[in-house]
Design a protein around this nucleic acid. Sequence first.
DNA 1: TATGAATGAGAATTCATTCAT
DNA 2: GATGAATGAATTCTCATTCAT
Lengths: 192, 192, 192, 192
Amino acid sequence: MSKVEKNKKQKENSLYDAAYDLFTTKGINDTAISEIVKKAGVAKGTFYLYFKDKYDILDKIILNKSSQVLSEAIIETKNKNFTEFEKELLYFINYIIEFFKKDKLMLKLIYKNLSWGIFKKAYRDYEEIQEIYLMFERGYENTSLPKEDIEKILFIIMELTGSICYSSIILNEPANIDEMKPILFDTIKKII
Amino acid sequence: MSKVEKNKKQKENSLYDAAYDLFTTKGINDTAISEIVKKAGVAKGTFYLYFKDKYDILDKIILNKSSQVLSEAIIETKNKNFTEFEKELLYFINYIIEFFKKDKLMLKLIYKNLSWGIFKKAYRDYEEIQEIYLMFERGYENTSLPKEDIEKILFIIMELTGSICYSSIILNEPANIDEMKPILFDTIKKII
Amino acid sequence: MSKVEKNKKQKENSLYDAAYDLFTTKGINDTAISEIVKKAGVAKGTFYLYFKDKYDILDKIILNKSSQVLSEAIIETKNKNFTEFEKELLYFINYIIEFFKKDKLMLKLIYKNLSWGIFKKAYRDYEEIQEIYLMFERGYENTSLPKEDIEKILFIIMELTGSICYSSIILNEPANIDEMKPILFDTIKKII
Amino acid sequence: MSKVEKNKKQKENSLYDAAYDLFTTKGINDTAISEIVKKAGVAKGTFYLYFKDKYDILDKIILNKSSQVLSEAIIETKNKNFTEFEKELLYFINYIIEFFKKDKLMLKLIYKNLSWGIFKKAYRDYEEIQEIYLMFERGYENTSLPKEDIEKILFIIMELTGSICYSSIILNEPANIDEMKPILFDTIKKII
DNA sequence: TATGAATGAGAATTCATTCAT
DNA sequence: GATGAATGAATTCTCATTCAT
């Protein structure tokens, strides 16, 4: 990577970091581009060299951060070499929950903006994400369930986990996450 | 109600209707108060006589609209006089889904802004909402499940339904709502 | 006119005056809206209460100013009660030339932006403008020339006068206006 | 011409072509240098190696294009070997009109920016342009008209033609060019 | 010569909120 | 209570120009 390339990457990263910090602490609406560039230590025009507008950098942040969480979770899960699908899945889900318990701000930013569409995009750029689906496929390999239905079940479990995390970690509703966990795990067991 | 009172109510309602229309079609961020008052046919200052700001009227709209949907759904469900809890619940859920299939815009507005907190508020102002909980209580009356756990299950099912509606009706992901329904119903059956 | 109405008119006029001054002295491109409002002594937002953008106020200024010049010229001409069309027309043209000799800045602003379209608009709002056409009609009343052709001749003479004024008064090309006048008058005599 | 020289000329020409295309289609104000260089396929800095700013390249384009039209028109006219001045002049004028009928965009760009000053500049660089004046001189050779007056008449006719072309071809006012032509030709006949 | 990333001043525009009528 | 003109801070976004490579 040339010096120029390095410098470009550095500037882009400064912008990512600054925007992420401001989005999580002040909220998206209350963050102005002028604040992002100030915090990143670059000129205003530089922002527009890399991003179309505030929502462009937001989308890219959401994609990066959520992919990171999922990657980390699936890698850690695979390292455990589970033999049983149920245990493996619950470990994976639990890893995500514990992650978000420690990083509420990220959860807040990601959740309301995360969608299956972004998840699919992550497929391409982060190959670990594919491992999540493969885990499910292995879990259902002795059943006659068609591929699409496996995907739907995966989707339902992910959505459910996301919803519960958001409500209980951020809003403490209808109870805090530790109280919700047993019933969530129970539900997931029933689903699979 | 005096003539003056009527006039006031009328103005307030115009504002509600105008704001709802604009929020659903243009989005919340892209709707200015000046547009709301213009559409409502009242003066700018009048808005501030009834609401604090844009988010004040939004919250009230969300509360009204979501309570309306749930009220309608539970009333219709009760009218059917189901004897079996499972059938009753699925009818209720299905009613909501079919409602949102016909009114995507409302779903879009409500979902991203609905929370268990608003749901609890609705308890107070709309007594039909309490019926939803009572339906669950009856469903679990022969079990030893504590009150809080029943509430959590209700919550989980509501969140799951909301998530699935949003993804499949608005985004068609991972499949359209009619394809998702069987698997969602199956999941709910397993949960309860 | 109520106090509020008066105040509005006053603000609008301040904006007109400030914009006219800046457009003529600094040029259109180099005049910012922030300068206009500053000079007019009103807030930035006030500008947008009355005009869409810089070109909106420019168009209105062009229409006003050019109508004013033509009105003044035709009124003065009619006051002289000429009996001969040629003499009347040349007096009218000369009046315009002398006007612009004294107000080069207005000429510069108006000319490149003036068009027959604006002239037609002026017909509606300033009834004196119609007198210009009536003068021509009377001049040609004993000929069989169709109405449209009279209009075309009027147009040609107006365009020619405008062009010559602009080149010779502003650019001194190909000679100054006093040198150009005899040949212009000669040309007009030949045309009519 | 060396390879380097060729390459330079090529870049300069790309810039000319790109700028001309953008000026005619988007307008001068709405064309940014960044767009010109993008379309020309050269780097931003390269622009400043050849031109001072946007108005520098504009002036050069205007000079080139207008000289081209006039050159073409006078060459074609001379090829016809007219013996009568009136016929020769009208052929020349008509050639210009027909040219602009086919290339409205060029007319639009040139007219508002053309001046006698540019015309005089063209004298130096394009010797054919001098032929236009010579045609006039021959036309008036048997009169006692001083040189300056001949130039003024030429100027008046050129200005008039330009004005009429612009109004009737671009704006269709007060009539389309084909309706205006007879009356314009008539006027020119009277003038000479 | 040529490049194009970076700059940052500054332009246009919006809009929540106030307040005299 | 109702109005809507006025405000001006805040925000987005553009773009000519520079300069290290």
